[in-house]
Amino acid sequence: METVLSINQLTKTFGRITAVNKLDLEVKKGQVFGFLGPNGSGKTTTLGMLMGVVNPTSGSFSWFGQTVTNETRKKIGAVLEHPIFYPYLSGQKNLELTAMIKGAPADHIARVLDVVELTSRKDDAYKTYSLGMKQRLAIASALLNDPIVLILDEPTNGLDPMGIAEIRNIIKKIAADGKTIILASHLLDEVQKVCSHFAVLRRGVLMHSGAVDEVGKGEETVEVAAYHDDLGFVLQEFAGTLSLKRDSASMVVKLKEGYNSQDVNRFLYEKGIVVSHLVTQKKSLEKQFLEILAEADSIKK
């Protein structure tokens, strides 16, 4: 697949702090790429370098396989961290200004205002907007020039649950058009819902990069309950059991690789036990994320 963004050994230091450390990353066309990491791990700094506002200390990157100029950025819609607008201008006037800079047709403005449902407030000064309205305007301005790539850094910060769901739908809709999206966020269930790929950054170092689908592959965990006193004892004998834990009314079995919940069910049935409850615990991105970071910590020690 076509490479949209290619980052090569990108590094940024602020005095003693290395905010981004020899980062290598590729984003392909059509991916919805989640950019994860704890506070201060270097996400915004990386995006800042990609958008030309932070000068890299060393390393390089290329958009669409070309050397980067300001023209490149006009094809990218980006909101980094906070919405930034002229407070004394109305939402409409702010977007007119953005359209002028990006070279976007002026008739796109009404459309993007509609998408983020700000049309009724478009003539009010930006400084009178609520936080959520400011966020929406920022997303509208990122969409203004029909961008090939959309970069969103915590786009749902301060939005109400409805707003979050709307943004999720906007992201999904844009992704369905085959556009590439890079999304930095702390809301991991959001990322899991919309992203196809993700990378984890920790203190500027890339810890993991891969597809979201792969999360939860590998060993499986199964919750089992049955009206049987020796359930735990029987499960211990099962060849696929890696570890076993009692959890109030049920047993939680971690399985060896190659075994799944069907195998557990069949084994118990053969032993004459009929299960009343059998659930495969799907591994969440959140869990995976915490594991990746914990792993990194244990290696460090």
Binding site: V53, N70, R73, A78, I84, F85, T98
Partner: peptide
Amino acid sequence: YRTIRQNIIDGMSREQ
């Protein structure tokens, strides 16, 4: 207002 940052992000060069 940090609008200089957004101007650059939106596609102005620093020279411009």
